[in-house]
Amino acid sequence: MDEIVVIGLSVLTSVAILLLTSLGLAVVFGLMRIVNMAHGEFLMIGAFTTTVAVRSLELPIWLAILCAPIVCGFVGALVELAFIRPLYGRRLVDTLLATFALSLILYQVAINIFGTAPPGIGTPSGWIEIGRYTVSYYSLFLPVAALVITALLYVLFKFTRYGLLARAAAHNPDMASVLGVEVRRVNLVTFALGCALAGLGGGLLSPMVAVSPGVGQTYIGQAFMTVITGGPAFLLGTLSASVLLGGISNIVSQLFTTLWGLTALLVTAIVLVRLLPNGISGSWSRQL
């Protein structure tokens, strides 16, 4: 019994990690159709922001995690102005190249600033006992955080004026422009929001993984897979894909080995994209 509970909690944590590392990409790639190859580096910037805030500024960890989206949102806004703005409406491969270059630059800058083995921060302490097992509080906190963030995003895009304009500007910029939406400004805010979400994801993960300049590159492949299998409903689609991919991967890891878990994630993604070329949400009527 205790074993099943622990496996269930571990599945929730895996789903949360996948969701937190994908949400930023869901907004930037899922909604805006910008292939952001530097997504992993925004996760990395978020993780470093949290680490530095805890170690150098001695902020409490919760406050430090909240610094991550602010810094990443700011960096994201600068990136949008410098790299992305000239490329709207061009081919996908243009943004791919530009952001890939950006990813290489940010990675090397991180190495130059932090070195290859920078000191990190520990997981906030405490664990709960379930029968023979112990589970860390923080791994229980992650699913809650992921769910709250997704809910807030849903409210933002569904019920606020900005959310409506953001979707309009992404889906049909010409028409939105004709109707008086200042598309450039809305896109700037949306891109920065996507980067801030990536930063928040990185910040939340930083006490669980070893933060190094390469930390984001572990997640970018899975993030793209999640958003693509999620399909056009960029929020709930990504949520469903995270549950499916993260869940299957963790359960297979639990039953067999971690290698099979990783394999199961890739196989599931391939089969899904083959059977549902438009993603899980391809046939849904909702757009979020």
Partner: peptide, 13 residues
């Protein structure tokens, strides 16, 4: 453990 794995939930269980 494959070199690109950093979620050790299943291993720890």
């Amino acid at each position: 453990i494959p070199l690109d794995v950093s979620d050790f939930g299943a291993t720890i269980r």
